[in-house]
Design a protein around this nucleic acid. Structure first.
Length: 283
DNA sequence: ATGAATACCTGAGAGC
DNA sequence: TGCTCTCAGGTATTCA
């Protein structure tokens, strides 16, 4: 379940192994992985042949491969997307959807079991693809503005977890790191954004940043030279979660069993003692 | 403008 | 063994 830290690991891998290479051929194995590229799969592949990769950038969970002449390939990993750099002819991974042949005898492969992710060609998208102009800056962006975030958050009238999952308010946060940062702060997921105290918003932001940096530090050590990989099971994911997926296990702060609630067609994990449920929606 | 619900997807695992 | 059901969840779209 790639969120910002996992996507950043992928970006670093592409930067290291793909930048400087020229794409000699693109093959779309499943058209659903390019459904966001409205002109279709044939147009997608024809636009990539002969193009040189000059960089890799990211905002939130979106990643784009920068090409010569200021164009880009916009990518999202969705739920299950993975990038792999392999020798041409190496056994294909399961769920291979797109393959970009490079000029050094290797291929950049995109595999995606659930096909929530995908790629599109973004004309003039090298600096920031216009398709994602609505995505807010993420907390690791040097230009992220905490004051602006706080002001916009407070104008909302919704649960705080809903708000931090809204990529137009703050990007990069998914269900896992939302639960982790709410546990650390600590705040119940249904706390009303309008009634949060300044200290609480500031604390939440600090913990969002910290949890992502810790995950990045661990995830960044887990891929080897020829294999750019993300599958949601970075070292962090397996070892360090304190709320997400911990239903019934004792809270590491107070020992109370962690609870799980249904929330937005997914789950929220929280400590009933540290993160008390707000009464009548106010606090 | 904002909030909330829904569609899109596959495969693992549970229950019968 | 094989069927059905549930769950995982990010995003665009639709509706209120």
């Amino acid at each position: 379940m790639p969120e910002l830290p996992e996507v950043e690991v992928v970006r670093l891998g592409i930067q290291e192994h793909v930048v400087g290479r020229t794409i000699t051929q693109a093959v779309v194995h499943d058209v659903r992985s390019v459904r966001r590229h409205l002109p279709g799969a044939a147009d997608f592949t024809s636009r990539l042949a002969g193009r040189t990769v000059v960089g890799a950038a990211r905002r939130g969970k979106y990643l784009w491969i920068q090409l010569d002449h200021d164009d880009a390939i916009l990518c999202h990993l969705g739920m299950s997307g993975q990038f792999l750099v392999s020798d041409i002819g190496a056994p294909e991974p399961r769920h291979l959807r797109i393959a970009l042949t490079l000029d050094d005898g290797r291929e950049l492969r995109f595999a995606d079991q659930r096909i929530f992710g995908g790629m599109s060609f973004s004309e003039d998208g090298a600096e920031l693809p216009p398709e994602i102009a609505h995505i807010a800056r993420d907390p690791l962006d040097p230009l992220f503005d905490p004051a602006e975030f706080s002001a916009r958050l407070r104008k909302r009238e919704t649960g705080v977890k809903r708000a931090i999952l809204d990529q137009t308010l703050i990007s990069g946060v998914g269900n896992i790191y939302a639960d982790e940062s709410l546990w650390r702060t600590p705040l119940h997921y249904a706390r009303n954004t309008r009634h949060l105290r300044t200290r609480e918003v500031e604390g939440l932001l600090v913990h969002i940043g910290e949890v992502m940096l810790e995950a990045l530090a661990q995830g960044g050590t887990s891929f080897d030279a020829l294999y750019v990989n993300v599958n949601g099971n970075s070292g962090y994911f397996e070892r360090s979660l304190q709320a997400y997926g911990q239903e019934g296990k004792p809270c590491q702060r107070c020992g109370t069993p962690i609870r799980r609630d249904a929330f937005m067609n997914r789950s929220s994990y929280w400590c009933p003692t540290c993160q008390p449920r707000p009464r009548n929606g106010k606090f």
